[in-house]
Design a protein around this nucleic acid. Structure first.
Lengths: 246, 246
DNA sequence: TGTGTTTCTCAGCGAAATCACAGACGCGGG
DNA sequence: CCCGCGTCTGTGATTTCGCTGAGAAACACA
């Protein structure tokens, strides 16, 4: 089930109308904090654990609808934790967090069961999007709702990663796609460069703030090229997207 | 929940009708004083602390609905304070104060959790507006109320930063926008040039007082141009805005 | 390992915004 | 009716902000 809040944000809800519950498992406090904050902002109920034992215990009491699980925990191997979690929650989807250079083969097998993974350092947009996908597909929200964002004649499919405006397909790079998704999930709302940076770039990004300007410029070339512009600058405030008409 | 006072000021209230509580944390006495006064004027209940330990202690007892937190505190790092605060108040939104030149000050991930920040030197209008936005969005006030100010046929949307009169969109610069917001939040009330300067310009502004006249003139050109004027001069007293009719 | 793609830094340009200054304007008192 | 003070606004200097080209570095994939 999905609901649209007064601001226009679309929230996932469980069939009985209660908020979705997510368990976050990571031993780095700063990561659990970061994730908890961002996921809570999505309107979800969050609990966190710092090790495998805590995760299993929390799973038992909290009965989450999805789990974010770091594969590198101090007390037990990621796979062992997964096994124990599965015994408690057989059908709950899991989003794995793994180091970039870690053996990805093992993970590949795991995601076959409908789970998913992202590599550290991740961007919040990526985690949230994957998690939304998992929850949507797991059926925890009753109806399996669509995954297509639309603003004016611009559409973005979160599943197939296809983007088109007025029927013409548009090829975007990964970063461009995430930026556009963030804009489109907040139509008609001014988003500051800081917000965009925090949300679309990985949490360890330490570069120049003008990457945002740069990528906005790329997006405009691909989306607004020769057409009525949809991406607008609010000087000193940020950017917003809205339908061309109006 | 929102209520309209006899003066026409719109106040945020908690669901039980009690005033919103805000904790202000900064080590410079002059800043906490300035903020406390301005925020109290909004009808909020204010408590202040001068360091991290004090902030945590105050959070425990005071249970604020929002926190204004300077990132540069004498006893502990801003992020450390944030962590401790979060343990006490998991869902409370935080408005960070950061020095402009402090190289982007590691804001990473902070705004993504629904928090926000302003740079020093700030204007009071800016702080109040951001804080109102945070509180509104956090849901501490029960229903999430709208963000559109209206005076006569003039409307100003604080979220999208859009302004229009009688349906026609009007483009305003950042300063013009803040000035108009201040006027519109105090309709039919004479605001002196000093008041306006104190509220809309940053606290360290050292320029000529006639910037206010200048910006009023800019606003009139854009808002009153060729129409029944809404911005009026009270010679020797200040300016006020009111609906064209009457 | 090699090639094409993507991400990002750097630097320069141009537009927009802010503000000082000064002269014009006009209200209100004498 | 005229003067003086307060207000308004045109001009232009300066600064800030945003946009984009060029190229380096990192990456992905064969």
């Amino acid at each position: 089930m999905t609901t649209t809040s007064p601001q226009g944000r679309t929230e996932l809800l469980r069939p009985d109308g209660s908020p979705v519950r997510v368990l976050v498992v990571d031993d780095e406090m700063s990561i659990t904090e970061l994730l908890s904050m961002a996921l809570r902002y999505e309107g979800w109920q969050i609990r966190s654990a710092g090790d495998g034992m805590g995760a299993v215990r929390a799973a038992r009491g909290f009965r989450p609808d999805a789990v974010v699980l770091d594969m590198m925990l101090p007390d037990m191997d990621g796979l062992a934790v997964l096994g124990r979690l599965r015994r408690e929650l057989p059908d709950v989807p899991v989003l794995f967090l793994t180091a970039k250079d870690a053996v990805e083969d093992r993970i590949a097998g795991l995601t076959a069961g409908g789970d998913d993974y992202v590599t550290k350092p991740f961007s919040l947009e990526e985690v949230v999007a994957r998690l939304r996908g998992l929850i949507r597909r797991s059926g925890a929200t009753g109806r399996r709702s669509g995954s297509v964002l639309t603003v004016g004649d611009l559409t973005l499919d979160e599943d197939s990663h296809e983007v088109s405006r007025g029927g013409d397909g548009i090829h975007l790079t990964a970063t461009e796609f995430e930026l556009l998704r963030f804009l489109m999930r907040n139509p008609r709302r001014v988003l500051s460069k800081a917000q965009i940076l925090d949300r679309v770039w990985s949490y360890d990004f330490g570069g120049q703030a003008n990457v945002v300007e740069l990528y906005i410029s790329y997006l405009r070339r691909k989306i607004d090229a020769g057409r009525e512009p949809m991406i607008h600058t609010r000087r000193g405030a940020g950017y917003l997207i809205k339908p061309a008409a109006s």
